[in-house]
Structure formats: C-alpha cells, structure tokens
Amino acid sequence: MIELRSITKTYGESKNVVTVLQEVTCTIADGEFVAIMGPSGSGKSTLMHIIGLLDSPTCGEYILDGVSVASRSGDDLARIRNEKIGFIFQAFNLLPRATVLRNVMLPLIYGTRDSGSRLERAQVALRAAGLGEERWQNRSNQLSGGQMQRVAVARALVTDPAVLLADEPTGNLDTATGDVVLESFQALHDQGNHTIVLITHEQYVAEHAARIISIRDGRIVEDKKNGHRRAVRSITPAVSV
C-alpha cells in the first residue's frame, strides 16, 4: 500500500526555488497496475524516485505499507528498497560483462533474508519475466534490447518485492519489443502479487495499465480507471525475444 500525502518537492534555495511536485496526494493499493503519465518536466520521475525511496520529499508524508518513511536512516531505506521495491529502468542498467543469472541474483547479495536457494529464485524470476533458459549463461551485453529488459524485470522480481517501479521501460525498445515487455507486466498484474507503477510519457503505453494518473507541472490533473485495458497479445502475435 502506497500512500502519498501532500507530497511537495522543491529544489534550490530561496529565490531560485523550483517546485517539481506540489501537494501530490494519492493512494495506490496492493496489486494495482498504475501508470503515471505526463510530459517530460512534469515531475513524474521525481515522483517515482520518491516512491522508490531514492529521494525524499521536501514536505508531506509518504507511508509505505503503513510505515512513514520520513525518519528512516539511509541504511534502513536501502534495506526497504532491497526488500520491497523492484526497479526497472529505461536504460536497463545491467552489469554488462556479468551473466544473465549473475545480474538477476545481484539484489539478493544485499538482502538479509536467507538466500540458500538464490539460483532457484533467479530461475523462477527469469521464467516469470519470460526469458528463455538458453540465454541464462549469456553475458548481458550479448542480448538484444528486449532480452535485456526481461533480465531487468527478472532482477526486479527476484526479491519478490511488493512494488515494481518501471521508469519508461519501453523507452529504449521498438514498439513490438516494448509490447512484449508491457504484456509481461500485464501477466504479472493478473497474478496479483505485485503493485506495478509504470512511469511513461506515452498515452499508448499508459493504456496498458488498469489505472492512469496524469501529472502535469507537478500536480495530479487526472486519476481514472482504465476500463478497457489495451491488450497487446492480439496486435503483436509473434515477437520472439
């Protein structure tokens, strides 16, 4: 459960204050698939960083799973990121010379939980992300863009986080490959185990989510259910990644 209460974020000092987010209030329930949509400069990335605990709000309160995160130390925030949040970036951010498995297992080395079966968990995550087993020993710089993003999704899933945060996950992919990645988000949503927050500036991408929050100039301008979720399976029948 993500609760944002009057989140305001400003940068700069006194005269040159730039307000990036203004009084943003919203609640995202467990298992929701939400797209945060807005043009560049709208503050959606800052919002994602705050939700992902990479940044802290100037004012307002952020309650994650019933706990206010404002007073947490850096080490605590790192642990919460590790256990509760899975990041998926536009630029994938894989370790280029490490194997797929090694990339996926990376978050587990920073975890405190028992990791007796790391390999097993990585394999489960890779299957869930839909990457074929024949690629698992490849180095990540030998993969295609779509394959890399699937590795990134698997890496986000491997700690079984409550929240998946995807920042323009299709931004570096062609439409067909992007659709495959979006489809995998929908599949995850249908399983209902993860809250998925998708940041995008494209209406088309946002329409894959079940709820669309539009943001402009640091304010929420629209928050609506997306009744007729776009189904990618029908329009892109055979893309192999």
Partner: peptide, 14 residues
Amino acid sequence: REIGLRKAIGARNR
C-alpha cells in the same frame, strides 16, 4: 551507473 544501480537495489553506503 553500476554504483547507482547497486544503491537502488539495496546496497548500503558501507
């Protein structure tokens, strides 16, 4: 970028 990623996925400063 690798350092940024490691911090995002839960690496503490230490």
